[in-house]
């Protein structure tokens, strides 16, 4: 295996100034119930520092996806608060927040909605109102970052699952986000595509929060692990330590490695 160099994440505050000590994410006592009455979050608090790579694990229905959707302001209205790079997630701030938090959805078919790969990667920057030249530059850059530069003119539905995942990541990298939020990044991938994805995520110089069931990937890629169950955070600490606590893992439906 080649030695992978670990790049340093870009840390700036909400106004673009360097701020190495800024909290990338700050979630405080977040509650949320869906309109049908189902309570998904019951007081979640979480802090992620700049440059950290954090895994969010827990059984299905624990509230992981609900939490991720709050980071981008797609869900809101419950009690509690969310701050991204020091900026509160509120309606007037949403256009800025959405450029800073790159949300990669679980099913790349939902994320890649444009006819071609190029148009999909260009969607974010275009809707940020960037000039066309800059958009083109960013598309090439993002596709190169995920190793898909030659796929720009391809149709999305022609891609394999692994390729779709990579392009889905490129669609948010082109917005130059500060935080990459991934929902089940390795789900549905065959071993080779999964390996490629892990290598890719390792090289991206960016703060990362990923929900996943893939404990092997967690051990390999994420130094910090957060366990959620029934809408609460039940454990938060170094991955290596938490993976030793067999009882804790089993109590929350997680596999011991």
């Amino acid at each position: 295996m080649p030695i992978v160099h670990e790049p340093v994440a870009r840390c700036v505050d909400g106004w673009g100034r360097p701020a190495p000590d800024t909290l990338a994410l700050e979630v405080e006592d977040l509650h949320f119930a869906y309109p049908d009455g189902h309570v998904a979050l019951r007081g979640v608090s979480l802090q992620v520092h700049c440059g950290e790579k954090v895994a969010l694990v827990g059984p299905n229905g624990a509230g992981k996806s609900t939490l991720l959707l709050h980071l981008n302001g797609l869900l809101n209205g419950g009690q509690g608060s969310v701050r991204v790079m020091g900026m509160p997630v509120t309606t007037p701030n949403l256009p800025f927040i959405r450029a800073r938090v790159g949300l990669v959805f679980q099913n790349p078919d939902d994320q890649l909605f444009s006819p071609t790969v190029y148009e999909d990667v260009a969607f974010g920057p275009l809707h940020m109102g960037l000039p066309e030249e800059e958009v083109r530059r960013r598309v090439v850059q993002a596709l190169t970052q995920v190793g898909m530069a030659h796929y720009a003119d391809r149709l999305s539905y022609h891609l394999s699952m692994g390729e779709k995942k990579r392009v889905a990541i490129a669609t948010v990298l082109s917005m130059h986000p500060d935080i990459l939020v991934l929902d089940e990044p390795s789900a549905g991938l065959d071993p080779r595509a999964r390996r490629g994805l892990i290598n890719l995520l390792r090289t991206l110089p960016i703060t990362m929060l990923a929900s996943t069931h893939d404990m092997l990937m967690v051990r390999e890629l994420f130094p910090r692990m957060v366990i959620m169950d029934e809408g609460r955070i039940v454990a938060d600490g170094p991955t290596a330590e938490l993976l030793e606590q067999t009882e804790l893992l089993e109590a929350h439906g997680l596999e011991r490695l």
Partner: peptide, 17 residues
């Protein structure tokens, strides 16, 4: 899909190159 669009800054006006 709508969520994925909004997450990338869609605000009602669809723009393409």
């Amino acid at each position: 899909i709508y969520n994925a669009m909004v997450a990338r800054g869609f605000r009602g006006q669809y723009v393409t190159i």
